[in-house]
Amino acid sequence: MNFLLQLLNGLQIGSIYALIALGYTMVYGIALLINFAHGEVIMIGAYTAVFTIQLFLANTNLPYILAVIPTVIICTLIGMLIERLAYKPLRNSPRISNLITAIGVSLFLQNLMMKLFGAQSRSVPSILNAEPLNFFGAKISFTTLVTIVVTTILTILLQLFIKKTKYGKAMTATSEDYGAAALVGISVDKTLTMTFAIGSALAGVASILWVSSYPQAGPMMGSMLGIKAFTAAVVGGIGLIPGAVLGGLVLGIVEALTKAFISSKLSDAIVFGLLILVLLIKPSGLLGEDRKEKV
């Protein structure tokens, strides 16, 4: 039973990685840019969630879960703002400039939040406190269940959006060829903004789910979370939506099982070891096609 419980824990944390990894992978797919500031969007989301809940606690009897609304809105706006201010001016610059900028934005946001709210973490009571449910003999917490269900639903909705709607198809077209997309009348700028907005909105949901399990926010929390989610995206195959989800879940499960049965100190080493292993055996990721770069 302990194994099943750990597997569920892995699925929970993996779901959060998956939601964050979707943001990395969508932006990479369309802009060929690793948005290193994505982890900081989560961090800002977590602060928003924590402050909103504190506000609710002090003044109203509103259910904590309503914090999801301001969190998603703030994350979406921050994501769009980052794109507009940091990446758009570099649209035609070499990719290395974008990479450096991404790291710069990430450090800037970390330090800005540290300056504003201090280096200490802020904590709140947990958001989703309900009785654990019985799941084939294993006690599954309500938070775990919600996290897994929400991630599944959002992934399906995202896939439908991309495959079925006009805007989703415009995203696919833009990711393939900016020039040809512009020629059929797609605004490349708007499409990129939309991509950042969707990725950041998902990050907002991820930060609420994260705060539900680990009810605190600190200025540095985004960096490890971001790197793990980025690893998940690469393990699954960067640029691929199903890859991000698979990578996230695999990473989460490996991490949870390592912590439970091998050593909690080794869990990060094993997670990143997995990344190296995948890159050695299948550089394009678990679901990636092995394509030779065209010259």
Binding site: K166, K169, A170, T172, A173, E176, D177, G179, A180, A181, L183, V184, G185, I186
Partner: peptide
């Protein structure tokens, strides 16, 4: 455009539909 530059990952129908994106 030169070299056709169709959207290879989309269906033929979707390529056509995107052609009227601006309209």
């Amino acid at each position: 455009p030169e070299g056709r530059r169709i959207f290879t990952n989309l269906s033929v129908l979707d390529n056509l539909k995107l052609g009227s994106y601006a309209i």
